[in-house]
């Protein structure tokens, strides 16, 4: 991760409200595996004169920040109320099974081959399209097990629809 990029992001935001969040988001997005390595966090802490413990506390508090490398593709299942009433839980379980990803707390949310990471979001705010799944930043509505399997397979085969 180039120090120059981080410096520039910090310079543009430092001192503003919400600076740290914006900086961490920008730096994470820049990383090809969409996460914040420890060295990067230390660098930011030093540059912004923030105690490293505080940066670490922020990075682990917010769900958006990843401290581990993410898979090539992200499948994000909405677990909001409307989606839940329309079966998003079983959708989550089935895609986890398909990709060999456990749901336990200490288990990795990324498939063994590094291709897919499964995340959940509390609510996308797309309730009329329930159940909602976001595949690599593309929102898909009215998803069922069959359509989800199809979409995931398409991505796996490299055909980005």
């Amino acid at each position: 991760m180039e120090a120059a990029f981080i410096d520039q992001v910090i310079a543009s935001r430092n001192g503003r409200p919400g600076a740290l969040l914006a900086i961490l988001e920008a730096v994470q997005n820049r990383h090809p595996q969409k996460y914040l390595p420890e060295a990067t966090l230390r660098y930011i802490a030093t540059a912004m004169k923030i105690p490293p413990a505080r940066i670490y506390s922020v990075a682990t508090f917010y769900a958006l920040f990843n401290l581990k490398p993410q898979g090539e593709h992200t499948i994000c299942i909405c677990r909001g109320t409307a989606c839940h009433t329309r079966g998003s839980r079983s959708l989550l379980e089935s895609v986890r099974l398909d990709l060999g990803i456990g749901g336990g707390e200490d288990e990795s949310p990324t498939s063994p081959d590094g291709k897919f990471t499964i995340r959940t979001v509390a609510c996308f705010g797309q309730c009329a399209l329930a159940p909602v799944v976001e595949l690599d930043h593309r929102i898909c509505g009215h998803v069922n097990e069959r359509t989800l399997t199809r979409e995931v397979a398409a991505i796996a085969e490299g055909h980005d629809r």
Partner: peptide, 9 residues
């Protein structure tokens, strides 16, 4: 020294 912090939620 700010060594300690609370992590996670």
């Amino acid at each position: 020294a700010h060594v300690w912090e609370v992590t996670n939620r």
